[in-house]
Design a protein around this nucleic acid. Sequence first.
RNA 1: GCGCCCGUAGCUCAACAGGAUAGAGCGACGGCCUCCGGAGCCGUAGGUUGUGGGUUCGAUUCCCGCCGGGCGUACCA
Length: 562
Amino acid sequence: MTPREHIQAHLKKAFDKLGFNIDDASLFTLEQPKVENFGDLACTAAMTLARVEKKAPRRIAQEIIANYELDPFYIDRVDLAGPGFINFYLAPACLQRSVIEILAAGEDYGRSAIGAGERVQLEFVSANPTGPLNVVSARAASVGDVMTNLLNAAGYRAVREYYVNDAGRQVRLLGASLDARYLTALGDETPVPEDGYHGDYLRELANEILESYGESFKNFPEADRQQTFSQKALEYMLARHKKSMERFGVYFDVWFRESQLRKTKEHLEILKKLKAAGFIYEKDDAVWFKSSEFGDEKDRVLVTGDKRPTYFFVDVAYHENKFKRGFDRLIDFWGPDHHGYIPRMSAALQALGHPKHKFQVEIIQQVNLLRDSQPVKMSKRAGEIIEMDELIDEVGVDASRFFFVDRRTSQQLDFDIELAKREDRNNPVWYVQYAHARTCNIFKKAHEKGYSTTNLRDTSALTDDFAMAIIKKLIDFPDIVAQAAQTMEPHRLPNYLKEVAAALHRFYHHQIVLDADDKIRESRLLLTDATRQVLANGLKLMGISAPTYMAKLDTAEDAEIV
RNA sequence: GCGCCCGUAGCUCAACAGGAUAGAGCGACGGCCUCCGGAGCCGUAGGUUGUGGGUUCGAUUCCCGCCGGGCGUACCA
């Protein structure tokens, strides 16, 4: 039982005795006081209760404390402070035992069951297969992937899905664009359609096709040729996207194709349902959905005047399809340019009978690339964009993932390329990885020095402030994971890991681990190992490697020798 | 015009479902290397949380107005 759980269980007893409503979960929130003198965990229930009970909060706090059964193994003392805070001071014995518990839990440390097995589907990236992935897709990939990890660790059953827009106008345009490149490559100068895709990648693909198939497509009827090229370009782009994702460490459970929906005509079923429910009307030859009845600013077209289903229409069918597959909740990650799209999708799903809270959209804000604090100029029109793959080539997977998740997703991200590449304390991902490597190195050194590192079990020598500070950080981990999952705020994880790393470095610089008395060494090795475990588990949730050593930088002296 | 997101130290960001004296890192300034990796550690300075109201025991957090920035506002996807 964690100290937090212990306190909550005892608070429950006290509330019960006093006749408070123990169904109110907010009574049990324990926060960490900002100031050290205020104990390790603080309960704010007295102040919450003041209104309902119509009593002074300090008075209520006194009653709670009087009825709180104190177990000295866990709690040193309980204080009443300020307007009605109840401050708990954890006992060294329970903190010392936490180290053993963390090690016993091992790779499972940090997991919890809060999610209660809820089935959640996360859809992210879902980039149009009409060009290479950009850096926003990279951010979406990082955030979506880490969020899925966090949810699964918190007891949800979460899966990753990628929606492939492989039908409709843009794919036809893609085919036409490739066709133009192909004919041009054959010497028949043909312009790419005005609103087509002008990037170099189609030129490259055209050359590949020419090498593999020669001129054989030249004599196809134009319609057939474009059809063929649409398919070829599509599969080519899709394969590239898959490769980028896998290289980035993101593995989707499902790649769902829009064309599949069109084949099975699932959107027509949707139309029937909406019509039956009275949310459909016709105007100007088009079919409209009354999304404004659910808070959208205006109604939306489902079938255009020339009888084509809109993207939105098929997308509704897609989301309905997800629900049919049994998910309790859908979470979509969209780019900032799609936030205006949320009300209509939400409206459609509500019209189809799904409670509003079962569909949730997280907007991932844009990424500004910086080089030495100067913005990297990108022009979509001129085809000057930094591709996701180029970014990974330059800064690597670990740094990219860390940086993309390090800030709340609702904020624009300034991504400093030079900082991400630095191999020193300025770079947070190195700082955290180095902390992990340092814990491993201590064990390596222990072996070299002939100290035993097996059958360690005594943590009673962990009494100093630096050790206690680490343990208090380590026992937060399950809570950090659970809260990051529940609030959809993955940035809390990297922020936490930075704090653990700082606590470890501080401890290391003030306390000798190896060349200490046997008992102290044993205790500190255990603490080192528990810290390693938490860092490793955290980095794994981030999808970042946990190195056991760091490659040495060239020192100035080495440079002189060379 | 309307809608959504954002505004916190010089810079980049935190602040855990409204809590106590708003915290880190970088940068600046000042310390610490016969010691498990100095790739680190310790300290100092730096704030009217954009602004004006409101809600209450208490607001960076919730509500309204204004200012500033970003994005959107298609029978496109």
